[in-house]
Simulated assay, not measured.
Amino acid sequence: MPGVIGLSTYAFFWRWHAETNPRPIDLHDMLDRTADLGAPLFQICDYPLVEGYDPARLRAHADRRGVTLELGTRGTAPDHLARYLSLARALDVTLVRSMLTTDRDDAVAALREALPAYERAGVTLALETYEKVPTATLVEVVSTVDSPALGICLDPANCVAALEHPTETVTKTAAWVRNLHVKDFAFTRRDGWVGFTLAGCPLGEGLLDYAAMVAAVRPAGRGINQVIEHWLPWQGDSATTCALEDTWTATNLETLRSWNP
């Protein structure tokens, strides 16, 4: 079954961010915006408030709008992963993204305890590439556990902060990828040319080698969903930032669709 293109809570970050937005939107609003843009997938990622929602009501809303859900959290503690598996089953979710927050040996032990339940439920756990865990270590954990319910969520931009080249991240993880986070990024000089800032940019305008990533991972042939995220810098005020975020979400979705006819 071919993968689909969807949106993440990170595509609406400044819209739901209560610390900066005086009128933050909620998950039902994000679902509606996703459906209105014609995206069939919405990943609820790093949004702990989801644990306080009525899963039956949230799933019914997603079903009405024709949107499939995925989940995202952090950590590998067995009790935490069990809670998210329970939530995944209630929401008819088949992929949960997480991140390693402990060392290799503890992660392997925790995953070996947690994953049999994921296997029985037909739910995949995808561990994301990011700067606090060397890509080689992440691959070692996944290959050592060797579960059909375990894979990698690939986001090559995240590893740049650890001086890992995006191309190397893609090459090392390609065989294990079960989910793609798609966001573009670029370096810009700081004022006075003192250092650089690494931040997001509209898809197709930065350093993400999307063609090479897709050639290595083959998402269409392997049923891997592609989820749009942003690293949109704060623009000085909520209204301006949210307006630009809306533009990025719509145009990045249009761009990604054009690359996947």
Rank of each mutant, 00 (worst) to 15 (best):
S8C: 08
Y10D: 02
W14K: 00
W16L: 00
E19G: 06
N21H: 13
P22L: 01
R23T: 12
P24L: 00
H28I: 09
L31I: 05
D32G: 06
T34R: 10
G38Y: 14
P40C: 01
L41I: 05
C45N: 14
L49M: 09
L49E: 11
R57S: 11
A60G: 08
A62T: 08
D63L: 12
R64T: 11
R65C: 03
G66K: 12
T68C: 02
E70A: 13
E70G: 10
E70L: 09
L71A: 07
G72I: 05
G75N: 05
P78L: 04
H80M: 01
H80R: 13
L81I: 03
A82Y: 10
L85N: 07
A90H: 10
A90D: 09
L95H: 14
V96F: 10
M99Y: 14
M99K: 15
L100Q: 02
T102F: 06
A107N: 06
L111C: 06
A114N: 07
L115Y: 11
P116G: 03
A117G: 00
Y118G: 01
E119Y: 12
E119V: 11
G122E: 04
L125T: 04
T129I: 05
L138M: 09
V139Q: 04
V142A: 01
V142L: 04
T144D: 01
S147E: 05
L150A: 03
I152G: 00
I152C: 01
A157R: 15
N158Q: 07
V160Y: 13
V160I: 15
K172V: 13
K172G: 00
T173A: 14
N179E: 09
K183D: 06
K183G: 07
T188I: 09
R189H: 13
R189K: 13
D191G: 12
G192W: 15
G195A: 08
L198N: 06
G200Q: 02
P202Y: 13
P202A: 03
L207F: 12
L207W: 09
Y210W: 15
A215N: 11
A215W: 08
A215C: 00
V217W: 14
N225R: 12
Q226S: 08
H230F: 05
W231K: 06
L232Y: 10
P233G: 03
G236A: 08
G236E: 05
S238H: 14
C242M: 15
C242Q: 14
L244N: 08
L244Q: 14
T247M: 05
W248T: 00
T249L: 11
T249K: 10
R257G: 02
P261S: 09
P261M: 03
